[in-house]
Design a protein around this nucleic acid. Structure first.
Lengths: 200, 200
DNA sequence: TGCAACTAGTTTCGAAACAAAATTATCTGC
DNA sequence: GCAGATAATTTTGTTTCGAAACTAGTTGCA
């Protein structure tokens, strides 16, 4: 009974923030893209990754990106290793714009909660998201430090290199310390990775 | 720091549910209308009320309603007291359809939380919503029991009529016990009704 | 090498959602 | 009874979106 009420509150918050997204220079989808490319790690700054994050199609994602490029908020750079892929990066204009993100009102609203409430909400939302990800056929995108493939190698043989070095066990590449909090397309949640739901 | 992360989770949930709304017989806006008319109290089952709830225009609201009527999900009934207004009601088909609401996956996800987590989330969301409502110039629509105009008259002179009778102090009309949990257009939040932000 | 299957990204198209303005019908106050 | 307000609708043009078709680059396999 209270579940429905709570779920409706969730929906209402989402709708309100969506509506806020209209007042400004960018559309809600474009704000979303700007946010995503600001927070995505180097593997994940692609149209496809954004499409997955947005739970939309690649075609739609391309259009939002095209608009942002035309407006000078993003620049593209082809991948060296794969001629098909491109990497999107925020320009300084893009970064400045992000400071005016209407989404900031939500951040401030959440910030006005006290700490225990906020962490409780964070944990609850986390669980709701992973439940949703398993019930729908939707992938979720998360950050390296919460990922199955995240390997932390503690100060192995060189004490002078710092406290620890991180690595992606899936791609076998090192992860920069400043990147462990960024979003990654290859994210795999820690607990429920027992079965692969994507059947051929 | 954790505030931004939590806010992003909120946004993500909203976006996911929005995307779920596409797979099915109805569009997201139509699902929203169906949900609204299922949960609105007798004063509020009008196109205008839905438009306000959706934060959109009456014209747009009319179109969603028209589609639902054409599909046999809603029926209209003119008001007796006011020839301009119409009241929308779900048909049995509409009610049956609501059971397939893609939003139900969110309800189930919330339901999988344990009770303390759920109530913590509910309280936190409530607070976030009212913070948002004061910062943005957006009206929020809520239920009678949380409203300034809600008057509960405890068993006055007739012990046999039940424990209590409710009344809307704004409209001076009785509220049926089963209606106190329904949405109302005239909703006014309890705490921050000190000033009216809608200037002429 | 050569070819098929696959993947990343883009383009195109039609269906919607939407805002804004004009329109119709009804109600309220004077 | 008339002017102005209100509820709903219609119309028009713009924007957004998903689906599907398409281009180009990559991978696997013989």
């Amino acid at each position: 009974m209270s579940a429905r009420e709570t779920a409706e509150l969730l929906l209402q918050v989402g709708r309100l923030v969506q509506a806020e997204g209209y007042d400004g220079e960018l559309s809600p989808a474009q704000w979303m893209a700007l946010r995503f490319f600001a927070r995505a790690n180097p593997f994940s700054r692609t149209p496809s990754a954004f499409a997955e994050f947005q739970a939309t199609t690649r075609g739609t994602a391309t259009q939002a990106i095209k608009a942002l490029e035309a407006g000078g908020y993003l620049v593209r750079q082809p991948f060296k290793t794969d001629g098909r892929s491109v990497s999107l990066r925020l320009t300084s204009k893009g970064k400045k714009t992000l400071a005016r993100d209407p989404f900031e009102v939500l951040v401030r609203a959440v910030d006005s909660l006290d700490t225990t409430e906020r962490t409780a909400m964070r944990r609850a939302l986390h669980q709701v998201l992973s439940t949703l990800a398993t019930s729908g056929a939707r992938r979720q995108i998360g950050v390296c430090q919460d990922c199955t493939h995240f390997g932390r190698e503690m100060c192995r043989n060189l004490p002078s290199t710092g406290p620890s070095a991180a690595e992606c066990l899936l791609l076998s590449v090192p992860i920069q310390p400043e990147d462990v909090g960024l979003l990654c397309v290859h994210f795999q949640p820690m607990n429920e990775h027992l079965e692969d739901r994507r059947t051929p």
